[in-house]
Amino acid sequence: MHKDRKKYTIIVVEDNAGDFFLLQDYLDEMILTPEIIHVASFKELDSYLASNSKEIDIVLLDLSLPDKRGEELIKETLKIVGTTPTVVLTGYPDFSFAVKSLGLGISDYLLKDDLSAATLYKSILYNIERNKNLVKLKESEHRYSDLFHLSPQPMWVCDAENFQFLDVNLSAVNHYGYTTEEFQNMVVGDIEFDDTETDLSSDPIPGNFEDVYKHKKKNGEVVYVAIRSNTIPYKGREAKVVLVNDITESLRHLKAIEQQNERLMEIAWTQSHEVRAPLARIMGLIQLISDAQTPVEEKLEMLSHVMDSANELDGIIRKIVKQSKSIFP
């Protein structure tokens, strides 16, 4: 039979020397070069883990050690082994305790009396592999949770039917001023601002904006927000995950730009229509004055019209200069 050539690093926590040698035999039988770290008490395990950063594949834990035993031992061990799978080995068959310890987070529960090289090997292999997937899953969950909680934009999850807030992220808490607990006792409608209360003439929304809502912060400030949402299953019910984009500032800028544009249009209109009127008059008059056939007394009269038109033009240009200044308050 071929032995497993993979390199395994295994911690065996066992105070009974006989049991330890037996385990060692079993391991040697199936694995070519197992690296076995033997510790005889919880304390030794603790100090080994604290002083070594070596990657451990699996921990085999005897349930009755001189310094700790049973449930307490399991709990304390799981705290210090991190994500490493831990298999409990015991001499006492206790079915209900076995189930309980699996619930606490250990990977497997083996009876020493039933143990053989093959069952031990199978358990080690199986639990190492299964644990890898569990760790990946947890990391993934954590990553997605971070995406929500650490998003720079306010986000929340709310019930799809009654719109109760189920979870809110940090940005939402900072932006709206409500604590997470306050949010969870509210519905989305509580932060929506009732339009009918205000004078719409001061409304900076230039219309036709889809999915723009007015929201009211805890401090009473009203903001304009663009909302995007998706349906997700959340803890067994249908929910909506909502991303909020506060566009109040952008709208203010837009409004300012539109007002500036209006003034620029006015100036352009003045340029085209008002400025050219006296100018065209001056040009027409000069055409006539320069004509040799025009009588002198008419020319003198036309010259006075030239002067009047020049003054008018001067006035209009001053008006434009004033208008231009008003564009940038």
Binding site: R281, Q287, L288, D291, H305, D308
Partner: peptide, 15 residues
Amino acid sequence: DDLIAIMILKKVLEK
């Protein structure tokens, strides 16, 4: 509404 403009145009037509 610009009487001078009318005057100018009339003169041009006369020419």
